[in-house]
Nucleic acid binder design. Structure first.
Lengths: 240, 240
DNA sequence: TGGGATTTGTTCGTATGTATT
DNA sequence: GAATACATACGAACAAATCCC
């Protein structure tokens, strides 16, 4: 019986299987760019780090693979996914499509406390940014997941989560070092447009925002310096 | 080294892990409605049926769960997913969004042999329907996956595949017995519109088509008669 | 309520496959 | 090209949870 803070901040208390904890920790580590694209993730090292067997580590890796965060080649092991530029364009093209859908729905029906939730999330983004916390990278993406959650559609939340994760990975691979810092202003503008149920403006801002993110991703590449066990030791904690 | 016919008909020769074969067989069985929603899928029975250990069966089930085709409750096992009516509406709402995206892209750029591929697929649908083969149910869904494949976007293919799978499950749960048989005419019309690069008409047909499918799903429920090992014995074969 | 049967969760030894020297 | 080093794939056994009578 472990307590863990799930992605959306809700605390669910459940008899969590071991692989869930590993999955969550690895996911955070990847999204916060502590584990960079291309880093090898051998089952043994991960199992040792988290104090479980290879099987649990493996299950976590399989789930991360279905999220597109790691790539598993048969008999050749797992590594943090290295999206290509071509894949990057696919991701952002589809992301624009889905985020427009989100905005369209929210302008038709915004839940009661929706705007408040968005505002308080942006405040947290600002705090994390000022503290130069690696959380800020992840929070920037989770703003978009929060938007999806306000639509109430589980499937849409799922798809947006997947695509935001991949976007983060793309930024980790191609973006500038602290590439998450720019978007907060646009988040604020977007909230304003949503408050006025102004779909037109909101979509324009969103398009601009996503293009900005995408452009940031088209700079030069960075090289890798993997020493997993050291990095992961900071991520085996349970809560945020 | 095993040969297996993958979903899209391409034969890929590869050293396929055992769980892949189980995954593919179970998937087919579910999509062809041989395994109905709610049917329990104990690891032991599956392992016995396919002649492998529980580990491989378990891995296959985990992957099916991430596709949304089976539900796994901790310590309580796996079962073919039983989508609710609410989830059904979510699925079709998002499906309309994504399929419109597909059509939009195809009307901008249709690959060379695209129309031919679509026509030959519909021919196969007709053959399967005349033969009253259970394949016709699956082929009807795969028409839409083929559309997505023509866009060339892996991610879009992935999302459409997921959502088509879920739609099939919804039809299995709520639809009339042979609910796949109606759509072929509309597939033909859609191809015609795509040939003319007429996005307007194509989207209208697609909307109508999806609404028809959705409406068919809103009839009465059916009960379950699970006896897995018997059913699965017809699905352990390798090819289609 | 209780206890036995069943099913899942996990571990670890062994086999197998790949890359490298 | 063969041997070695390394990492995954699989299966049998054990532990824990759940179900059913």
């Amino acid at each position: 019986m472990i307590k863990i803070a799930s992605d959306n901040g809700q605390v669910m208390s459940t008899n969590l299987s071991r692989s869930d904890a590993i999955y969550a920790s690895l996911r955070r580590a990847i999204l916060e760019q502590a584990l960079k694209p291309g880093t090898k993730l051998p089952e043994d090292s991960i199992g040792d780090t988290f104090g479980v067997s290879r099987t649990s580590a493996r299950n976590a890796l399989l789930r991360l693979a279905s999220d597109g965060l790691v790539e598993i080649k048969p008999n050749r092991g797992a590594a943090v996914a290295m999206p290509t530029l071509e894949e990057a364009e696919e991701v952002f093209a589809l992301r624009r499509c889905l985020e427009r859908e989100v905005i369209g729905r929210l302008c038709k029906r915004m839940p009661r406390d929706g705007i408040d939730a968005l505002i308080s999330h942006v405040r947290e983004e600002e705090r994390a940014l000022q503290a130069s916390s690696p959380r800020s990278i992840r929070l920037a993406g989770e703003f978009h997941i929060l938007l999806a959650e306000l639509t109430g559609s589980k499937l849409l939340i799922d798809f947006i989560s997947q695509i935001v994760s991949r976007s983060s990975l793309i930024l980790a691979r191609f973006g500038r070092p602290h590439s998450a810092e720019c978007g907060i202003d646009e988040h604020v503008q977007l909230i304003e447009a949503l408050k006025n149920l102004d779909a037109e403006t909101a979509m324009r801002i969103m398009d601009h925002h996503l293009h900005a993110v995408e452009d940031r991703a088209k700079v030069d590449e960075k090289d890798d310096g993997p020493d997993i066990t050291e990095i992961l030791s900071r991520y085996i904690s349970i809560s945020d």
